[in-house]
Design a protein around this nucleic acid. Structure first.
Length: 270
DNA sequence: ATGCCTAATGGAATTAGA
């Protein structure tokens, strides 16, 4: 069994104590991080390496920033999405996990899992340039996903998609009408990813579930459970076939100095 | 009530998040 989580930490330096406590408690094998908000030379590497993780980083000053932690060796690290050389925002990193496996398992492709950490732009408002960038980013992500899906291997693209796929994923759909997190164009782009052959791990196992992954700091959102499910683990068929469990690490939202997101965590049979 | 909170920057007020 291998456990893979995606988590928007909202600053790895500010969240360092909470992050270390969680890794010691739940011991996920792989963590896909977003919004690390620090350049690679300022990343607190040693604290995580001491826990046995290999790190792959793509950081940026102040904003964005993605990373992969893995108990397994990381190979073939790629940074950034193809399709726009002018896009300098650190929102995508990908790597291949080299997992010890028997020859029999390797014959079935069992020795390798490709993972990606993605931080889809928020978009701010539907009439802004940022929303146009969000939609273009999702188009590029879908194109790249099709490339990766053609490899016919276990693939997990996880992260903060800044999209609640359906009204079921929103505490109060009427209140969020017109938001960039629920807008029909963003939802259609996410569906393009799904139609291409990726599968929403949480939805596979919980068809009617209403676990959220984000609650606004403002307006006492957590206490009122006014949340959205915007963080996702998207699986290739080869990964989905091995899916054993998926859920949110909900208790982390109630801790002191919590991120506004909680990790979404899945278990895959190896 | 997207005015409500949190983080980074820089050393106050602004930008950004979602």
């Amino acid at each position: 069994m291998i456990s893979i989580a995606a988590w928007n930490v909202n600053s790895i330096r500010t969240r360092l104590p909470q992050c270390l406590a969680w890794l010691r408690r739940d011991r996920p094998d792989v963590v896909l991080l977003q919004e690390t908000k620090v350049m690679d030379d300022g990343f607190p590497r040693l604290e995580f390496e001491d826990l046995g993780y290999n790190l792959a980083l793509s950081g940026e000053k102040s904003y964005n920033g993605v990373a992969i932690f893995s108990k397994y060796p990381l190979e073939d690290v790629r940074r950034g999405l193809p399709g726009d050389d002018s896009d300098m925002q650190a929102r995508y990193i990908e790597a291949v996990l080299s997992i010890p496996a028997t020859k029999e398992q390797q014959a079935r492709g069992g020795g390798v899992i490709r993972v990606a950490s993605v931080y889809v732009p928020n978009g701010q408002t539907t009439d802004s340039d940022k929303y146009a960038y969000k939609l273009r980013f999702l188009t590029r992500l879908a194109a790249h996903a099709r490339t990766l899906l053609a490899y016919d291997e276990p693939l997990v693209i996880g992260g903060d998609f800044n999209i609640a796929p359906a009204d079921l994923d929103v505490h109060d759909p009427a209140a969020w009408e017109g938001s960039v997190l629920t807008h029909l164009e963003a939802r259609a782009k996410l569906r393009t990813l799904l139609y291409s052959g990726l599968h929403d791990a949480y939805r596979i196992l919980h068809p009617a579930g209403r676990q959220f992954s984000w609650w606004d700091y403002r307006g006492n959102g957590w206490a009122r459970d006014d949340g959205l499910r915007i963080d996702h683990l998207l699986l290739s068929p080869q990964a989905a076939d091995r899916l054993e469990a998926c859920g949110m690490v909900r208790d982390m939202r109630g801790e002191e100095k919590a991120s506004d997101h909680v990790p979404v965590l899945c278990q895959l049979a190896v």
